[in-house]
Design a protein around this nucleic acid. Structure first.
Lengths: 234, 234
DNA sequence: CCAAAAGTGTTATCGCTACACCCATGA
DNA sequence: TCATGGGTGTAGCGATAACACTTTTGG
């Protein structure tokens, strides 16, 4: 259908600006982290902020999210999910902008940590998030809430942990999400009973003398489990 | 801040049309239902569709939803929640329109059922939804999924059932949501054990000779339970 | 008096929680 | 040899699921 014809149908509608803001979670030995940026434009120039971009005419919403992630982290194929729409009329004093917040989960490594500095960005621990512009703190609170909820019925550790990880590492992740120390034995049993982990012969010796066995998710078994339906209740 | 000043900040952004579409659930003796409308404008005039509206410049997103509900059902203070953003570039052949889908839960009564006819609308049983325009069938599938999820940790029966209802009615609601017949005894026990229902002395005799006792939600006790956190696992 | 829905209790099983000791290793 | 984190098993409790008979009353 031609652009000219298109425009005839909804002639009375008022177009609005629409943006995507990304809540980018990462995880490493120190715990759960969040990537924040020094804002480059007015208003609120140089304040801490989530990273975002306006949605282009020719772009699907999720493409906007992936474009942002590619640009600022260099990563493609990132786990990215819609969080919700932030559309209060007065949320941005500079203009009526509707933001579709998305959250992303990425694996942290040294390369990542360095790359990010070129953008005046910083990985903040989840308990040390500063005051952000607009409603960005609210978005983050909602993202954490959703992460918790999601973790109940989907092993999202997949996305945040390295490909090979130890059970104590996995436990640390859930401890961080739920802000609660889980029992080592019960945690291990429950996870292993799910039968979605493959034990490797290698050990990770970076955190103890004895070393902890590395595991991998077994995608096939995991998918079967998801279909069947299950719920974590950590 | 003046309009003129506002417009200077984000000059390069391309505004888009943004709409709210409402998935309106109702529940009565026959089961879970969905309100659909014959579309009044081209393209797809006279096809079945969700009801929606463009978001006005001066309006919060949720206000758009409530405005729609008020106009087409006469109801205010309706349970309305964001479902998600449907923003594929080509979802509407007539123009680039981004839709923020919302779902609403309303109590059905005879008055409701009549009111709606004036808009060429119809309450469809949840198993007899016709083919709808655009991505509306997808939205409905997602809404049902979310309704199920939500029902696990919130007694949403509140919103859909009449103020006074019987246990068999409540069971019917959960049967409908989960498309599964629950065991009468277990269901009753579980619900009553939650201690959020107040038994009345009246009976509803419309569905049986013996009649079933009517109950009401006890808001106070319910709120306490929500705070403490719980999960239904029907 | 009978059809049709409402109401009630028990038992077996499963999953969760709590809890304490041994193991492997590098320094 | 010892300090540190990794690894293991069990018993008790509470929640869930399976299951069948009695009650009420309008027609």
């Amino acid at each position: 259908m031609s652009k000219e014809l298109k425009n005839t149908f909804y002639g009375n509608a008022q177009p609005l600006m629409i943006a995507v803001d990304c809540i980018i979670f990462g995880f490493d030995k120190e715990g759960l982290k969040l990537l924040l940026f020094k804002r480059k434009i007015d208003p609120f120039k140089d304040k801490w902020s989530l990273i975002g971009s306006f949605v282009d005419q020719e772009e699907n919403i999720s493409e906007t999210g992936h474009r942002i992630l590619k640009e600022y982290t260099g990563l493609t194929n990132v786990f990215l999910e819609e969080l919700g729409c932030y559309g209060k009329q007065d949320r941005d004093p500079a203009a009526r902008v509707i933001s579709i917040a998305h959250f992303a989960l990425i694996r942290l490594n040294e390369q990542q940590l360095k790359l990010v500095e070129s953008y005046e960005a910083h990985w903040f621990g989840i308990d040390e998030i500063p005051d952000l512009i607009l409603d960005h703190n609210k978005m983050i609170a909602a993202a954490l809430e959703k992460l918790r909820l999601k973790a109940r019925y989907q092993p999202i550790g997949f996305e945040l942990l390295p490909k090979k990880f130890t059970i104590p590492q996995l436990k640390k992740f859930y401890d961080a999400i739920y802000q609660k120390k889980h029992d080592r034995r019960n945690f291990r049993k429950k996870i292993l009973d799910m039968d979605i982990l493959k034990k490797l012969t290698e050990k990770d010796k970076t955190t103890s003398r004895k070393g902890a066995f590395l595991y991998q998710f077994d995608k096939r078994k995991y998918n079967k489990l998801v279909k069947k339906g299950f719920n974590f209740t950590f």
